[in-house]
Design a protein around this nucleic acid. Sequence first.
DNA 1: CATGAATGAGTGTTCATTCAT
DNA 2: AATGAATGAACACTCATTCAT
Lengths: 200, 200, 200, 200
Amino acid sequence: MPVPLSPRKAPRQARALVTHDAIVEAAAHIIAQGGLAAFNTNVVAGRAGVSIGSLYQYFPNKDALMVALIHRQQARQLEALTAAVSRVSGENLETVIRAVVRAAMQHHHDDSLLASAIDHEEARLPIDSILNGYLDRGGALVAALLARFAREIRPLDADHAERTLPALVRAVTDAWANLSPPRLDVAEDEAVRAVLGYLR
Amino acid sequence: MPVPLSPRKAPRQARALVTHDAIVEAAAHIIAQGGLAAFNTNVVAGRAGVSIGSLYQYFPNKDALMVALIHRQQARQLEALTAAVSRVSGENLETVIRAVVRAAMQHHHDDSLLASAIDHEEARLPIDSILNGYLDRGGALVAALLARFAREIRPLDADHAERTLPALVRAVTDAWANLSPPRLDVAEDEAVRAVLGYLR
Amino acid sequence: MPVPLSPRKAPRQARALVTHDAIVEAAAHIIAQGGLAAFNTNVVAGRAGVSIGSLYQYFPNKDALMVALIHRQQARQLEALTAAVSRVSGENLETVIRAVVRAAMQHHHDDSLLASAIDHEEARLPIDSILNGYLDRGGALVAALLARFAREIRPLDADHAERTLPALVRAVTDAWANLSPPRLDVAEDEAVRAVLGYLR
Amino acid sequence: MPVPLSPRKAPRQARALVTHDAIVEAAAHIIAQGGLAAFNTNVVAGRAGVSIGSLYQYFPNKDALMVALIHRQQARQLEALTAAVSRVSGENLETVIRAVVRAAMQHHHDDSLLASAIDHEEARLPIDSILNGYLDRGGALVAALLARFAREIRPLDADHAERTLPALVRAVTDAWANLSPPRLDVAEDEAVRAVLGYLR
DNA sequence: CATGAATGAGTGTTCATTCAT
DNA sequence: AATGAATGAACACTCATTCAT
């Protein structure tokens, strides 16, 4: 019998939703501070201000909480991307790319431990369908952009670009944001250069 | 007193070196199969064919074993890169890039769990100086290539390129190798395109 | 960061207090039977009838349990001494001394292993302030007695007597109670003789 | 089958004797520093400058090493006592007592951890006959002294005094030597007072 | 529903002891 | 004899999960 990974209850009431989010938020904070090694349901419950029993009312097990956290991070990323794209709807290619890069960078701010933890758990957990959902929606955004600037870029396979481009942005961001001190300015410039280079 | 992360004994005799490597190899295998969640010193010792006591003769604690594994992966990567570069010394830019990309991809073969685990542990453990050592050596290789093809590429900051380029390759590889089935052919093409785009 | 030695939770509920005491009692029993070599948290938990997890809810580590045991023994000793003194408030010097000696002996009954174990752990653990607290309270009792019989004893430094007298009683008790069979009758006579000799 | 506690070989050759003593000496040092909790055969061998294998050539097990250490301490104490007594052969009672007290104190210098450890192990190990041997020899010394000063002391049971007096000295010494800083001067005065009080 | 005490399988680590060299 | 690498039973301690209140 496979271990259930979906939330135990669809949080319908407002209070339940608040508690649910508080727990996921606490998990994110704990992992951002100490990595997967510090990810402990009792500690998460404590930081969320709920009892360990309540945590298990919302999540049937630890992996399910991890999945909820993955959902949150993916949704946030997608949301930020969407917002960034709509914000620069009339601008030229480079401005748009820069806006998108900036949005993607926001969530890597000082959470490199959280980001790499989620990477690893995404690979470990059987959640391909979930991830593909987010990937498709992100891909659609990218495809729309590619179509819009079709004249300025060289011909390319949209399916490929949809997967390659976000990876590009993410990698460059990681490489430059994890220094001490982080070089977010360089990260942005380098990511923009990489994306434009790939496209043109 | 910080927890010691360096190996307990410099393995001098041949047998000791073999044992040391067998343990690190076993750790790599365990993590590649089950992720960090399956990384367990007793299991590693078992798979390495040594007693748990022997494992602790070579590594003062679990983190030290992880550090040794990080060393191994970094060294292998660097070695593969160096070999690839020297193998294509007379070729043109694209051929060289393709060779380098192929070398970098080799170690992501079917070890995406291992790769992401190491990413995460590199961020968690206090081993900046170790990582910078490998980064510098990889950077030197890149810098040499950049100098060789200076005429074909646009002017760029070598310090930036040294850090951005390996990240590019890695990210694109990750994105395409972690599918099921992996699309290593696409990964190679996309990575080459990204690198050439960045450079030209 | 020094290892914490204080109890993990102040036991508030009645049940918690019972559990706490059961664990300490079990520790005392285990050590009395087999000495420090037999003092093992898993065995203590088993004898206390609680799980090992519960033991660690009450005590952050093994040393903290030892400290609680030291507290218990010191408190018992002090309590017995106080009771003995108040019980013979109107009697003459020798009667009082004999009562005090008898009280002090009670806890060496057949626990010589426990007594010597606690001696050793008191010397090993950084708990001077705790021990001084009990010493001071015991000293106050002795000082009151000395004052009461000031006319019958030779002039002496009360500070010295407070520390020397309990040691005297304890040593003589040890010497005679650890025989097989124990000679508690001789122990009492000898201790009384030593104390009276010291005082007069 | 009871575990053997006697030395594996009677060390006949000079070199073997040196090694034997070095091991016992190392054990004493380790325990004096860290108590029984730090008493570890591998560490002892290291400090003694021999291999762990050699240690087990001289002692069949850890308890046997402990017994050898007990022998050493008892022998030293007896030796010191004998020397002290013969050194003051013509003096008066108080001078003799003071010399004996001083001799007894010497070995408690800053070894309270070692002393209490040995106490505890003497109670745990089945070595009554060994201990009685030392007790008898010490008792004989005391008996001789008592006989010599028979006129100055009140009538007492020599068997009792033989056991009580050393305990007295030891306890008072412990009580005053384990302070920080140790009050060896007070210890001496108090011990002399206690002994003279007991005798007169 | 919420709580948090309790559980106990599991895991990291130690250390007495052995034995091939 | 001497060595020290190797062993593995034993132990301190953790933490996901349950359930009586």
